[in-house]
Amino acid sequence: MREPANEPRCRVVVGVSGDSCSLTALHRAADEARMRGAELWVVLAWQPVGGGLGRRSSAVPALYADCRSVAVERLRGILDTAFGAMKPGVTLAGLTVCGTAGAALVDVARHSQDLLVVGTGKGGRLRRSLRPSVARYCLAHAPCPVLTVPPSPLEADLAAAHRRNVWRIPLDTRELAE
Rank of each mutant, 00 (worst) to 15 (best):
M1K: 13
M1V: 06
R2K: 10
E3Y: 10
N6L: 15
N6E: 13
E7V: 14
E7M: 14
E7D: 06
P8N: 15
R9A: 15
R11G: 11
R11M: 11
V12N: 06
V12I: 14
V13G: 00
G15M: 09
G15A: 09
V16I: 04
D19Q: 05
S22A: 14
T24A: 11
A25R: 01
L26Y: 06
H27R: 09
D31A: 11
D31S: 15
E32D: 10
A33F: 00
R34I: 01
M35W: 10
M35V: 06
A38I: 02
E39N: 05
L40M: 00
W41A: 02
W41M: 01
W41E: 01
V42C: 09
V43Q: 04
V43P: 03
Q47R: 15
Q47K: 05
P48G: 14
P48Q: 00
G50L: 06
G50Q: 09
G50W: 08
G51K: 05
G51M: 13
L53D: 06
L53A: 13
L53N: 05
L53I: 10
G54Y: 06
R55C: 00
S57T: 01
A59D: 15
V60S: 12
P61S: 11
P61L: 05
P61I: 00
L63V: 07
Y64D: 08
A65E: 14
A65K: 15
C67M: 02
S69F: 02
V70G: 13
V72Q: 15
L75Q: 12
L75M: 08
R76I: 00
R76Q: 14
R76E: 15
R76P: 05
G77W: 10
I78D: 08
I78N: 06
I78S: 08
L79P: 08
A82H: 07
F83V: 12
F83G: 07
A85H: 03
M86P: 09
G89V: 01
V90W: 10
G94H: 04
G94Y: 05
L95Q: 01
T96L: 05
A101W: 00
A101C: 01
L105C: 05
L105Q: 03
V108E: 07
V108F: 02
R110G: 04
S112Y: 05
D114V: 03
D114A: 07
L115V: 04
L115P: 11
L116H: 03
L116Y: 01
V117R: 03
V118P: 12
T120G: 03
G121Q: 04
K122W: 12
G123N: 12
G123F: 10
G123E: 14
R125N: 13
R127P: 00
R128V: 02
S129M: 10
S129N: 11
S129H: 13
S129W: 13
L130Q: 10
L130S: 08
S133Y: 03
S133D: 07
Y137Q: 08
C138H: 07
C138W: 06
L139Q: 14
A140F: 04
H141E: 02
P143N: 04
P143W: 06
C144E: 02
P145Y: 01
V146E: 03
L147I: 12
P151N: 07
P153M: 09
A156C: 04
A156V: 07
A161L: 15
H162C: 08
R163S: 13
R164A: 07
V166F: 11
V166W: 12
W167R: 06
R168F: 02
P170N: 07
P170G: 13
L171C: 12
L171H: 09
R174G: 09
E175W: 14
A177Y: 00
E178A: 08
